[in-house]
Nucleic acid binder design. Structure first.
Lengths: 235, 235
DNA sequence: GTAAAAAATTGATTAAGATCAAACGTAAGC
DNA sequence: GCTTACGTTTGATCTTAATCAATTTTTTAC
């Protein structure tokens, strides 16, 4: 069966738009770009394939054009934990700019597409790439905000975490111009459980409780937010 | 009694060093700087005073020169939650660059000092501030990494969270050149509990268990890490 | 389209952490 | 220096979520 496609971000809405569009349109910047390496738009990544590996040398910053991705880290004890999600219009590998290596392994949840931005584009060289850096700053700041959401997931009660999770997803979809009150979750219950630090069974039961309370409709991965404000107030 | 001072970051070690030092030394950049507004170094902030308020318009990005700060968010339900800490050499307000407003209220845990970087320094104007932006990119990327740490705090077990918390603190102190295996925690048990999503009593008990296991020594806020690797492996 | 595999839900029991309550230690104020 | 207030630790009970186990649903493969 055909994999249902996740929404793709329109290039004009992408925070890194300037970098890509200028590259394609502006010959001067394109020339400068050549010396920086390529900014390659829209490369396919098949479901389950990783974009980058934790601890590997940072070579590219990525932007999600289409699809959904998860960040995974392997803890010293061997346990794997999902630490975040990346949707269309968001960046992957931001921590690498300062550390020089990827901090997370990032895996495609469905077939998708990512754009590449070479490390040289934001290293301390003498080229003036202020346009590029401006776009990167925006994307980076946005990423900080997303990571801050994640921090809130350490809420006390399980239902609160799940409610907050759905609210966050909704807000992020909305920001990038996708449906914010009715969507299909790209990740498994296992991924959600790992991300929230809960058992799968607890996640499942929390979904049912939120459903029972009339806040959401759920059928497998399909979710409709009946009352997003209530969801937020509850979390 | 005199408040025990938190270590101050030496300006040459600050990721925003270029911005400040160039400002002070390089006349050309200084001239450019004037048109951007001031980069004001080392302003005092008294214990309990807030650097910025959530939802307020983003005017300055801050860098911690000395002291320790906590980020606080008020949830819709009214509950206050600590979402992060900021130590010497780290930035405050990174999310504001993209959102235009502060996402967290940031409060001084002790008397400290912060440096100001005006919003105009990284807005999309025609001035070439690539040096400034380079420094900001680094600091921002670093902030992403710190926020990613926070995300991991949704660990399953309470002792793991506390162990991971201490490990994180240690790593961050080490990065900025401070003592990494023996330090005084600048935040209360309440703050830690809120940050980790645990009850104060559970935090206290976790400390005692880690002590009993020989991983740490604790006396109030004074902590010695006996075996940091074990702490990491455990978390 | 059907079979097999994986994912998700539901139920019963156990364990972990929250809550309630009180005592102790440290730090601030007089 | 003494008193008071706040922060921290310790104890007992109760609630919540993890675990163990089985079933149902959805997805994948042939």
């Amino acid at each position: 069966m055909a994999q249902k496609k996740q929404p793709a971000v329109l290039c004009p809405q992408c925070e890194l738009n300037d970098v890509c569009r200028q590259y394609e349109k502006d010959d001067a910047l394109r020339a400068a770009g050549e010396s920086l390496g390529d900014v390659t738009p829209q490369n396919n990544v098949a479901k389950g394939v990783s974009v980058c590996q934790a601890e590997n040398r940072f070579e590219y910053l990525y932007a999600v054009h289409e699809g959904a991705f998860k960040s995974v880290v392997t803890l010293p004890g061997g346990e794997e934990r999902v630490t975040g999600f990346h949707f269309a219009g968001e960046i992957i590998g931001a921590e690498g700019v300062s550390t020089g290596k990827y901090g997370r392994t990032v895996v495609a949840l469905q077939d998708g597409q990512v754009c590449y931005f070479p490390e040289t584009a934001f290293s301390a060289d003498e080229n003036d790439n202020s346009k590029i850096r401006q776009g990167l700053l925006m994307a980076m700041s946005h990423q900080v905000k997303n990571e801050q959401w994640t921090g809130l997931m350490a809420a006390h009660r399980a239902e609160q975490r799940v409610a907050l999770f759905l609210f966050m997803i909704s807000k992020r979809f909305e920001f990038h111009g996708f449906s914010s009150d009715e969507f299909r979750l790209p990740m498994s219950r296992d991924d959600i459980a790992s991300y929230l630090g809960l058992a799968v069974e607890t996640v499942s039961r929390s979904f049912q409780k939120l459903k029972g309370a009339g806040m959401i409709q759920v059928s497998g991965r399909n979710v409709i937010l009946e009352d997003r404000d209530a969801l937020q107030g509850f979390s």
